[in-house]
Design a protein around this nucleic acid. Structure first.
Lengths: 128, 128
DNA sequence: TAGTATCTACTACGTCTATAGTAGATTCGC
DNA sequence: GCGAATCTACTATAGACGTAGTAGATACTA
């Protein structure tokens, strides 16, 4: 199943659903910071679009409100974003990492952490 | 100077200008792979839009053609992209790195390379 | 200089996105 | 059961993007 391309607002809605679990349009809307919160119907429209994109689906109805659930995982959605970014950086992580180092976003600690994660991942991978 | 938001096509045009240096619309168009190359006027329109976004500027005229030059650096433009991605990953590189490791995009070698870049960067940074 | 090629400037248009209003259905409280 | 609140479904719209055509200006060539 291909991960659909999600826009910023769509992604923020997905984040809300991923975080809160199955929820209504109202709950999604209220997950947005009160300052600059989009209108209820703005969220509603975008939720519907996420539905046609197969990123959300209706699971049940509570009272007169539909309850939505994510059909794609945060892991998969983020993976797609990363793939797209990497493709703009020549396909590999080198340029991306180099850039983060130059701009101070990637520190010694982050690298050490990455090594640990890698080691852990390798151990798991071995058993597959 | 804020870096404007660039779309995919815009970014590909910028890449061409960054690579070739100041060039004409025709040269930009021909930098695209022949298969699926957009029409001349498609490039032209997008170049104009990049001009209003202050990402490109006309520097001179050769014969009857304008020559364009980048007003923003690849470094800055890529930095903006990375910032946007990182903000979707909680602001830090950890989640991003972890994801790349899990999906096999980040290897031991990449991490070793990053360490070298970091060391090199630190040496340079010290003298500033 | 006359014809041809090229380029600019402008216009057009379908799609997508963010935005939100409205009408009618549903439900809840009393 | 009736009024108020809430929700859905539909409609609308402005701006951005990718796409490209056309008319007129400019320049090269023979």
């Amino acid at each position: 199943m291909a991960i659909p391309k999600l826009t910023t607002l769509e992604l923020r809605i997905m984040e809300a659903v991923w975080k809160h679990g199955a929820c209504s349009v109202r709950e999604i809307q209220e997950a947005f910071p009160a300052a600059g919160r989009p209108a209820y119907t703005t969220i509603q429209t975008t939720v519907y679009r996420l539905e046609t994109k197969k990123a959300l689906r209706r699971v049940k109805k509570i009272s007169n409100a539909h309850i939505f659930e994510a059909s794609i995982s945060p892991h998969a959605a983020r993976g797609k974003l990363i793939d797209e970014l990497l493709s703009l950086f020549g396909g590999g992580p080198s340029l991306l990492m180099a850039h983060m180092i130059e701009t101070g976003k990637l520190t010694k600690e982050d690298i050490a952490e990455a090594e640990e994660v890698l080691a852990k991942h390798k151990r798991k991978g071995k058993s597959e």
